[in-house]
Write a protein that binds this DNA or RNA. Structure first.
Length: 664
DNA sequence: TTTAGGG
DNA sequence: CCCTAAA
């Protein structure tokens, strides 16, 4: 604490010295929040001079840190810092700082805030530059220049100079002073980001200092890399040592006893990467060395680099009260929530080491429910199924009987049958009605039943092809699709059906109602490959769930929809292009597009394997469409837009639409 | 509700 | 195709 006091004194003295300079308070911004504590630190002499506070007064500085923490936090919460950093250009931070040094008592408050702000700006700029350099180094592609970047470029021709400037400047007393500001603001995860893998001696020293001096006011201690200097082989460490190292790395205790876990966490922290696939770790000067490396692709390089980068960021951030903008822009993928939610829930937070760097992909929690459901249905057989179907039941029919699979209707237990029958698609065929709740394709279920008991269903099958197909495809879905919503139940049915009857039946029935010729994807085949009345063979038929094969026209609609609205606007596309296709949901479109992408690129790279994998019965996707898909994908991935590609790219010169006719 | 992703 | 989480 003595040191802190000294620092504060120095600050005040500086004010004192530069007192004579004129102030231009015009630069004051709304973010400048007066800090009342400052008043206690200076006195105004008769001539108006500011004099340092006495020792007793200085003691109060300690409180100020608390105040500042709050203040800085509030700044972060309102997002003002972002605005500040990105919008305001700072022609000369230093000059500004000097100019704005206080003159009178009234200005004093402003002075402090001014300095802080100036520093914020300065650091913001620096961080921008750091980031910029990062981008330059990581990729040849020039980074997108934000307004701030332009400003920076204008004033600083050489970024490296500024980088070094950061280093030189930061270890001064300011950084010391404000490290304590930073600490509580950054939560654990962000600290990890910043701290992990500091290879610089200075950073280590700073950390040590700040760790000791600021610990009084900070709940969580700072990492101490001095402990992990030199070469460390994690494998040789005991659990206790590993915990020690963990603490040195992440700046917090852990009670985890699992060696491997600890090693992995430490390694992750030091490399700032979750790509730790080895079991043996050696750490040398904070850089992870892999002795058993599975992925050798310049891991060391990247590790080292990120370490250095993070160190710079960290040093910079020490001087910056809050750094949301910079953090976010640095692809460190620190979410806003994290930065704005400083409460540190310790332990287990390190889990985030991994997720936080996973890039821009949306992060998902594990879906335990799905897992539970699956395992349950697997193990508990019928009981599990009943439960899950109950969960999905819209009607809320709680009676177990109501949930009995339709097959039971024709099975041994007639009494368990659902008493209700629905008219199916106006065909006059009565179908057993189960819980209407899933968006499933009823006809499969229905058909399979039909096939199993043609006699029971009477007339049907023959007529089906002509009549039912149309009805179902055009108007069913809403009623029919709800027919059997529970997949588990449906599966169950099918399995039972299969076990009792010929496996092909379902398959045959399934394709009856296809209004158009069905093509088959190149990739996502497995499901619909055999829609073929004449060759009802394969084993796949047994396993298939309700599946509506995509027709070529559908695919084309989809592709054009994507071309028009862009991939991702599935609901739009669905509304416009698939309005009449009630059985295609936006999710289906999305899935299909995903498959199309895969197909198109697969074809581009090697079409042989694909060709081999393709079964003879299936019709491949027309090349022009795949091409179009690929182009759309490229276009959307940031490439240069391709104009009316479909017209020119067809192998045969036909447009996609024309090509289509050949398949209908 | 819609979108993105995993299974 | 299904399911779920995130937005």
């Amino acid at each position: 604490m003595e040191k802190l006091a000294e620092v504060e004194l120095n600050e005040e003295q500086r004010i004192d010295e530069s007192f004579d300079s004129n102030i231009s308070s015009s630069t004051s911004s709304p973010k400048q929040i007066a800090n009342p504590v400052v008043y206690k630190l200076v006195r105004v002499e008769g001539d108006g001079r500011l004099v340092p506070a006495t020792d007793d007064e200085v003691m109060e500085v300690e409180n100020m840190f608390e105040e500042k923490k709050v203040e800085a936090r509030s700044i972060a919460d309102t997002g003002q810092v972002e605005v500040h950093i990105s919008d305001e250009e700072s022609p000369s931070v230093e000059a500004k700082t000097e100019d704005s040094e206080g003159k009178s008592q009234g200005e004093d408050t402003k002075v402090d805030a001014e300095k802080l702000n100036a520093r914020l700006e300065y650091i913001g700029v620096m961080l921008q530059q750091v980031k910029q350099e990062e981008n330059l180094r990581l990729s040849k592609v020039p980074p997108k220049h934000s307004s701030t970047h332009k400003t920076v470029d204008g004033q600083c021709s050489d970024q490296r100079e500024n980088l070094s400037a950061v280093k030189e400047k930061l270890p001064t007393n300011h950084s010391l002073q404000e490290t304590s500001l930073l600490t509580p603001i950054l939560d654990d995860s962000s600290k990890k980001q910043l701290v992990s893998g500091g290879t610089c001696v200075k950073s280590t020293e700073d950390l040590a200092v700040s760790g000791s001096s600021a610990s009084a006011s900070c709940s969580s201690s700072m990492p101490d890399f001095s402990r992990i200097k030199g070469e460390i082989c994690l494998d040789n460490q005991t659990v206790r040592e590993l915990q020690e190292t963990f603490r040195a790395t992440f700046g917090r205790e852990t009670t985890v006893k699992d060696k491997l876990w600890l090693k992995r966490r430490i390694a992750m922290g030091l490399t700032n990467s979750c790509d730790i696939s080895t079991t043996t770790f050696i750490i040398k000067d904070n850089v992870l060395v892999r002795t058993i490396a599975k992925d050798t692709h310049s891991t060391m390089e990247s590790c080292k680099y990120t370490s250095q980068f993070n160190e710079v960021v960290y040093n910079s951030c020490k001087d910056l009260a809050t750094i949301p903008t910079v953090q976010i822009e640095n692809q460190q993928v620190l979410s806003y929530k994290r930065l704005r939610k400083p409460e540190a829930d310790n332990e287990c937070k390190s889990e985030d080491v991994c997720t936080e760097q996973s890039g821009s992909k949306r992060v998902r929690k594990p879906t335990r429910r799905y897992i539970e459901e699956l395992s349950e249905s697997d193990t508990k057989e019928c009981a599990g199924r009943c439960e899950s179907s109950a969960k999905h039941s819209v009607h809320g029919q709680s009676s177990p009987k109501s949930r009995i699979s339709p097959v039971c209707v024709f099975g041994t237990d007639e009494t368990a049958l659902i008493p209700r029958y629905d008219s199916f698609g106006g065909s006059g065929v009565q179908v057993p009605h189960v819980s209407r709740m899933r968006r499933g394709r009823p006809r499969e279920n229905f058909m399979s039943i039909m096939q199993c008991h043609p006699s029971g269903m009477g007339m049907a099958v023959g007529v089906e092809k002509n009549v039912l197909g149309v009805h179902i495809s055009e108007q069913d879905s809403e009623t029919g699709d709800r027919n059997c919503k529970d997949r588990a139940t449906l599966k169950h049915n099918q399995e039972q059906v299969v076990s009792k009857t010929e496996p092909e039946k379902e398959n045959v029935a399934k394709c009856i109602d296809e209004p158009e010729t069905v093509y088959f994807d190149n990739i996502d085949s497995g499901d619909n490959s055999e829609c073929n009345l004449t060759s009802p063979t394969s084993k796949y038929s047994v396993r298939r769930k309700h599946h509506r094969a995509w027709t070529l026209s559908e695919v084309i609609k989809l592709v054009e929809g994507v071309a028009k609205y862009g991939a991702g606007r599935w609901s739009e596309i669905k509304k416009v292009a698939f309005a009449s296709y009630t059985y295609r949901t936006s999710v289906d479109l999305k899935d299909k597009w995903r498959n199309l992408l895969r197909a198109s690129f697969a074809q581009g790279s090697n079409d042989k394997g694909m060709r081999n994998s393709r079964k003879h019965g299936s019709m491949p996707l027309p090349a022009p469409i795949l091409l179009r898909v690929r182009q759309l994908a490229e276009k959307h991935s940031g490439g240069t837009p391709v104009l009316s590609s479909s017209k020119f790219t067809g192998c045969s010169g036909r447009s996609v639409l024309e090509t289509r006719s050949g398949y209908l």
